[in-house]
Simulated assay, not measured.
Amino acid sequence: MSDPEPDAIFRQRLLRVVAEKDRRFALVAAGIYLDQLARKYGLFRTGVPLKGIETGRTQA
């Protein structure tokens, strides 16, 4: 499996589909917050939701 996209590249892809009301948040969000917003639009850094990575959970 390849590494997930960095925030900057993922943000560019998200900004193509995000609604105007979410655009300002998409411009400043990072990490898990960017993932949560993208999930609302059906986008994932890896192309598909992966258990653990896309849910924002970390393994202890």
Score class of each variant (00 low, 15 high):
Thr46Gly: 05
Arg16Met: 09
Ala29Glu: 01
Asp35Thr: 01
Ile53Lys: 09
Thr58Asn: 08
Leu14Cys: 03
Glu5Leu: 15
Glu5Trp: 06
Ile32Leu: 11
Glu5Met: 15
Gly42Lys: 07
Arg57Ile: 06
Ser2Thr: 14
Arg13Ile: 12
Arg57His: 08
Arg24Met: 09
Leu43Tyr: 04
Ile53Thr: 02
Gly56Met: 01
Asp35Ala: 02
Leu43Val: 03
Ile32His: 13
Leu43Ala: 06
Glu54Lys: 03
Leu34Tyr: 09
Ile9Val: 13
Ser2Ile: 07
Pro49Ala: 12
Ala26Trp: 01
Glu5Gly: 00
Phe25Arg: 14
Lys40Ala: 11
Thr46Ser: 10
Gly52Pro: 03
Ile53Gln: 06
Gly47Leu: 06
Phe10Ile: 08
Pro6Asn: 12
Leu14His: 02
Arg45His: 07
Leu14Ala: 01
Thr46Phe: 01
Leu43Cys: 02
Tyr41Trp: 04
Leu37Asp: 03
Leu37Ser: 03
Val28Asp: 02
Gln36Lys: 15
Leu15Ser: 04
Gly42Asn: 13
Gln59Cys: 08
Phe44His: 15
Leu37Gly: 02
Phe25Ala: 08
Lys40Gln: 13
Gly52Arg: 09
Ala29Phe: 04
Asp3Asn: 10
Glu5Val: 06
Ile9Asp: 14
Arg23Glu: 14
Gly52Leu: 06
Gly42Met: 07
Arg24Thr: 04
Ala26Val: 03
Phe44Ala: 06
Glu5Pro: 00
Tyr33Arg: 09
Gln36Tyr: 13
Arg23Asn: 04
Arg39Trp: 04
Val17Arg: 14
Asp35Cys: 10
Leu43Asn: 06
Val28His: 07
Lys21Thr: 10
Glu20Leu: 12
Tyr33Thr: 00
Arg23Gly: 01
Arg24Phe: 00
Lys51Gln: 11
Glu20Lys: 10
Pro6Gln: 11
Val48Ile: 13
Pro6His: 05
Leu15Val: 02
Gln59Pro: 08
Ala60Gln: 09
Gly47Lys: 07
Pro4Ile: 10
Ala8Thr: 06
Ile53Glu: 05
Gly52Glu: 08
Ile32Gly: 07
Pro4Ser: 10
Ser2Trp: 07
Ile9Arg: 15
Ile9His: 08
Thr58Leu: 11
Gln59Arg: 10
Gly56Gln: 09
Asp35Ser: 10
Gln12Glu: 14
Ala38Gly: 06
Leu34His: 10
Ala30Met: 04
Leu14Pro: 01
Ala38Phe: 10
Pro49Cys: 06
Glu54Ala: 08
Lys21Phe: 02
Asp35Arg: 14
Arg45Asn: 09
Leu14Tyr: 00
Met1Asn: 08
Phe44Arg: 02
